[in-house]
Design a protein around this nucleic acid. Structure first.
Length: 347
DNA sequence: TAGTAGACTCTTTTCGTTGA
DNA sequence: TCAACGAAAAGAGTCTACTA
């Protein structure tokens, strides 16, 4: 097997001295030549710091203060899509009911959600352009800590935004890398002639965009077995939602979690709202991210209700925030006719 | 009969568009 | 640039039907 890089001084001539075996071959050094299988183009490998296109894209991405959050949101959206909790009750990709094939599709879905979240246009090839530079987006979700991105022939020597989701530790990280042919495995590639990135090349030439960032915890994963039995039991939606809010009080409940609990039932959000009076009787106020005043109060209490999430907090914590408390309680009182119920939401 | 689900209508909020 | 406007989405209330 001959690796596809040459000493630049040889000007396109692959000599015996520059040929390497695939196993244990060294990382193609800066200054050596790389030849794309796809275009046949021969070019010199640069340091990432000297790669104008890579640095342009890197500056654009790291200049976004919420980059890791935007990509994290895309990861969570992709996982929710694959789990299909709204129909299946599944909330964990490690669940035995999730097929390995389904897990693999997280990376594919991630491309679309990531472009959407970053406000990037979807193109045919490569996937998008960032700051005018063509960029491919590759995502991988693994359960063993390993990371492998398969690069298609047309992606060779192009810039790639690489995202790794660690499903066991619930975290994600992203890198930028120019995936030179010389950095990919040899042999015949897979059936689509895609090739994986060699680990030494990745360790040498990838540029991290941010460190490991935790995904938002899924409150369903933290439930005890007895709580989980009630939340996914045979009772009605309201009973099960109340059990969820009790068990996961002071924990942000994303909208997707509510849809998962109420899988295959109509109008679950209606049932969440219907639990508000009962929860108030138990001393818990349900804040909903849809309402501006609720969201603002949640921010004050250090809960992030973006994505129309909900949270059950002690009523005592809702009080004492001046006009904001007044607006939240007024919103909760709205429409209640029973005087005793209305009293539950008075300062 | 109580609890629950579903359907319908009204209200509120958000977001994109338009024009000054 | 910003306010006004309208459409769409989602919250909220009410009523009826079903079931154990």
């Amino acid at each position: 097997m001959v690796v596809a890089f040459e000493d630049a001084s040889a000007e396109g001539q692959t000599t015996a001295a520059t040929q390497r075996t695939a196993r244990g071959n060294p990382v193609a050094p800066v200054g050596s030549r790389c030849i794309s299988d796809f275009t046949g183009d021969s070019h010199v490998i640069e340091q990432p710091e000297e790669d104008v296109g890579l640095q342009t894209v890197r500056r654009d991405l790291v200049g976004r203060p919420d980059l890791s959050q935007l990509i994290g949101d895309a990861v969570e959206d992709s996982i929710f899509y694959v789990l299909d909790g709204y129909r299946t009750h599944r909330f964990d990709l490690l669940d035995e009911r999730v097929e390995a094939d389904e897990r693999r599709t997280v990376g594919t879905k991630l491309q679309y959600h990531l472009l959407d979240n970053l406000g990037l246009e979807k193109k045919r090839h490569p996937d998008t352009e960032i700051a005018g530079v063509p960029v491919d987006v590759k995502g991988t979700a693994t359960t063993d800590g390993s990371q492998s991105w398969m690069i298609p022939r047309e992606g060779q020597c192009e810039l790639c935004l690489l995202v790794h989701v660690d499903l066991v530790r619930d975290r994600h990280r992203a890198w930028l890398m120019r995936t030179h042919r010389a950095f990919l495995h040899n042999g015949d590639g897979n059936g689509d002639r895609k090739r994986g990135i060699s680990v030494p090349a990745f360790n040498t030439y990838s540029v991290p965009l941010y460190e490991w960032t935790p995904l938002r915890p899924n409150p369903l994963k933290g439930l005890s077995e007895p709580d989980r039995a009630v939340v996914f039991g045979s009772a009605g939606q309201e009973t099960r939602l109340k059990a969820l809010f009790r068990a996961a009080a002071e924990t942000v409940i994303p909208r997707g979690v509510i849809l998962t609990v109420c899988a295959n039932r109509a109008d679950p959000m209606r049932r969440v709202r219907a639990t508000r009076v009962d929860m108030a009787r138990e001393g818990l106020a349900l804040l909903c991210g849809t309402w501006t005043s609720h969201r603002q109060l949640a921010d004050v209490l250090a809960f992030d209700l973006t994505g129309e999430a909900w949270v059950a907090v002690a009523m005592s914590k809702v009080l004492g925030h001046g006009e904001l408390t007044g607006q939240v309680l007024e919103q909760m009182r709205r429409g209640l006719r029973d005087e005793a119920d209305r009293k539950l939401f008075e300062p």
